[in-house]
C-alpha cells in the first residue's frame, strides 16, 4: 500500500461529518415516524376507589362464627402509599384470592397478616387477636399457626427436601425422629410427590413445579389453620399451573384450611378462590365470588378480566 492510500486527517474529519449527518437524518426519521403513529388507546377510567369491607364468607356460615383473619381499615405507606383504608374479613375454610396490577400492595397484605410488617393505621386480627401490638417473639408464635408458600418457593438451599419439610417440626415441636419422618412422608404424599424419590434431593435438583410442591408441603408440615400463597402459579407452565391450582383446591376441600392467595393468574383465581378481591390504587375496588366478578359490569373489572 502506498502512502497516498493512507487516510489523511482531512479525510477522517470528512468521514466524521458524513456519519453525523446520517445519524441526524435517521433520528429525524424516527421522530416523524412516531408523529405519524395513531395515539395510544386511552385507558378505561377506573372507578373511584372507595373503602369497603371485603368479607369472604358464605351465606351458609353461621352468624356467631367470627373471621379467622381480619384487616380493619388498614393503611400503610413507605415513601408512597401502599395500602389505604383496606378492610378484609376471611371466614374459616374460605379461600380468598387477591388480584391486582403490580405494585398495588397485594404481597404487602400477606406480610401484614404474617406480621412481617406493621400497618401505620388500623388493626390486623388473627382469630380475634390483634397482632399489631405483639412483640417480635410473640409474633413468632402467631406465625407458627400459618403456612406460607413463597413465589420462588424459598426452600433452604443447603437442606435436603426432607430437612426442608421437617424444619418447622424440628423447630417448634417435640416430635420424635420417627414421628417427624412419618409426617414429612404424609405431607409429601399429599402434594403428589413420592417421598422416597425426593426426600434426599437438594432444592437445586428439583423442577420449578416440584419446588413449589415441596414449598406447600413445608407450609403444611405444622398442620396450620391458615395458608398464605404469594403468586403460587407464577413462572410455571400451564400444566403445572393446573396441578398447583388443584392442589390448593384439594387443601381447601380435604383439610378445610383458610387460605389467602395473591395472584396475577385470573384463570386459576377463578378456579381456586371462593372469593376474589381486586386491589387497585392501594384499595379494594371489587370483592365477591368468581361468578359475581364475571358478571360485573364495572368497566375496570371487565378491563382487568380481559387484560389478563
Amino acid at each position: 500500500m502506498s502512502d497516498d492510500d493512507e487516510p489523511t486527517a482531512e479525510d477522517q474529519a470528512f468521514a466524521g461529518r458524513v456519519r453525523r449527518a446520517i445519524r441526524d437524518e435517521l433520528a429525524a426519521d424516527k421522530v416523524e415516524a412516531r408523529k405519524s403513529q395513531p395515539p395510544a388507546m386511552p385507558r378505561i377510567p377506573r372507578p373511584t376507589p372507595t373503602g369497603m369491607t371485603c368479607s369472604a364468607r358464605r351465606s351458609s356460615t353461621p352468624a356467631n362464627v367470627s373471621p379467622v383473619i381480619a384487616l380493619e381499615r388498614v393503611s400503610l405507606s413507605f415513601e408512597r402509599p401502599v395500602l389505604e383504608d383496606v378492610s378484609l374479613e376471611i371466614y374459616p375454610g374460605e379461600t380468598i384470592v387477591i388480584v391486582g396490577e403490580s405494585g398495588t400492595g397485594k404481597s404487602t397484605a400477606l406480610k401484614l397478616i404474617l406480621r412481617l410488617l406493621v400497618p401505620d393505621e388500623g388493626r390486623v386480627l388473627i382469630k380475634g387477636r390483634d397482632i399489631v401490638s405483639l412483640s417480635f417473639d410473640e409474633a413468632m408464635v402467631v406465625r407458627q399457626q400459618m403456612g406460607m408458600v413463597f413465589q420462588g418457593s424459598a426452600l433452604f438451599d443447603s437442606m435436603s427436601v426432607f430437612e426442608n419439610v421437617a424444619y418447622p417440626l424440628r423447630e417448634h415441636t417435640t416430635m420424635s425422629d420417627d414421628e417427624i419422618d412419618a409426617r414429612v412422608r404424609e405431607k409429601l404424599q399429599f402434594v403428589d410427590l413420592v417421598p422416597d424419590d425426593v426426600m434426599a434431593l437438594l432444592p437445586a435438583e428439583l423442577s420449578g413445579g416440584m419446588k413449589k410442591r415441596v414449598g406447600i408441603a413445608r407450609g403444611l408440615a405444622n398442620n396450620p389453620e391458615i395458608m398464605l400463597y404469594d403468586e403460587p402459579t407464577s413462572g410455571l407452565d400451564p400444566l403445572t399451573t393446573g396441578t398447583i391450582t388443584r392442589l390448593i383446591m384439594k387443601m381447601q376441600r380435604e383439610l378445610g384450611v383458610t387460605s389467602v392467595v395473591v395472584s396475577h393468574d385470573i384463570r386459576s383465581a377463578n378456579r381456586m378462590g371462593t372469593h376474589i378481591a381486586v386491589l387497585a390504587e392501594h384499595r379494594i375496588v371489587f370483592c365477591g365470588t368468581p361468578e359475581e366478578m364475571a358478571a360485573s359490569e364495572d368497566r375496570y373489572i371487565q378491563d382487568f378480566l380481559g387484560g389478563l
Binding site: 406465625r143 407458627q144 433452604f156 438451599d157 413445608r218
Partner: peptide
C-alpha cells in the same frame, strides 16, 4: 445475601425462626 433475595430469610421468619 442470596438467602435474602430468594426469600429464604422471609421463609425463616414465617416458619417462626429468628
Amino acid at each position: 445475601g442470596s438467602m435474602r433475595v430468594t426469600e429464604q430469610i422471609d421463609a425463616l421468619n414465617t416458619l417462626g425462626t429468628d
